[in-house]
């Protein structure tokens, strides 16, 4: 059951992600944006299968619900015509492949190293029936991991918050009509 669902959601994710960038039927930017929404929703389906319900809900809420609506908003306001087919740019293709390869190797090594072992240990613990492990995906556990000082991620969290705040202030400053 879970395997089938994984195949469905993973297939949907890859297929709609492909259709975002290379859609043979339409060069309409709105179509691409809608396929990106489909991608987001199927990724949240993958999160559900992993037991990360909080992440799944936030994925839909933030990406599919807010970010993509703003994308659509901007695309519609700019009134983009259908993009013309561009020639294949070999340099950017090579750079793209290099970037994807680098990202893939980072993921691969991180899965194989520390965290991979940790998740294996969790699986063992789940087999032996420890209650604590069931909390991994829950909102409470996530909050405790994020906001606790000594072992948690409070410092990175706050740094990211300040970064977002700076970005927000910057956007407001840039979009003011008369800069003072």
């Amino acid at each position: 059951m879970e395997g089938t669902l994984f195949n469905i959601f993973a297939g949907l994710t890859v297929l709609s992600a492909l259709l975002v960038v290379a859609n043979p039927f339409s060069r309409n930017p709105v179509t691409s944006a809608l396929f990106l929404v489909t991608t987001m929703i199927s990724i949240s389906g993958l999160f559900v299968l992993l037991g990360a319900y909080f992440l799944a809900a936030v994925q839909i809420l933030v990406y599919a619900g807010a970010v993509m609506v703003l994308f659509l908003f901007v695309i519609m306001l700019l009134d983009l015509r259908e993009a013309a087919r561009r020639k294949l740019n070999l340099v950017s293709l090579a750079m793209g492949i290099m970037a994807v390869g680098a990202l893939f190797s980072v993921y691969k090594s991180s899965i194989e190293s520390k965290y991979g072992e940790a998740s294996q240990q969790q699986e063992v613990a789940a087999d032996t029936g420890q209650a604590e492990v069931k909390m991994v995906g829950s909102t409470r556990a996530l909050g405790q991991a994020l906001f606790s000082g000594d072992k948690g991620f409070i410092l990175p969290f706050e740094i990211v918050s300040i970064l977002l705040l700076v970005a927000m202030v910057g956007v407001i400053l840039l979009s003011r009509k008369e800069p003072r």
């Binding site: 809900a57 994925q59 839909i60 809420l61 599919a64 619900g65 609506v69 909102t139």
Partner: peptide, 16 residues
């Protein structure tokens, strides 16, 4: 367990 977040996520899709 994340009922309300799910609700808001789906409500936010209503705009499409």
């Amino acid at each position: 367990d994340v009922g309300i977040l799910f609700t808001f996520g789906i409500v936010s899709l209503g705009v499409y």
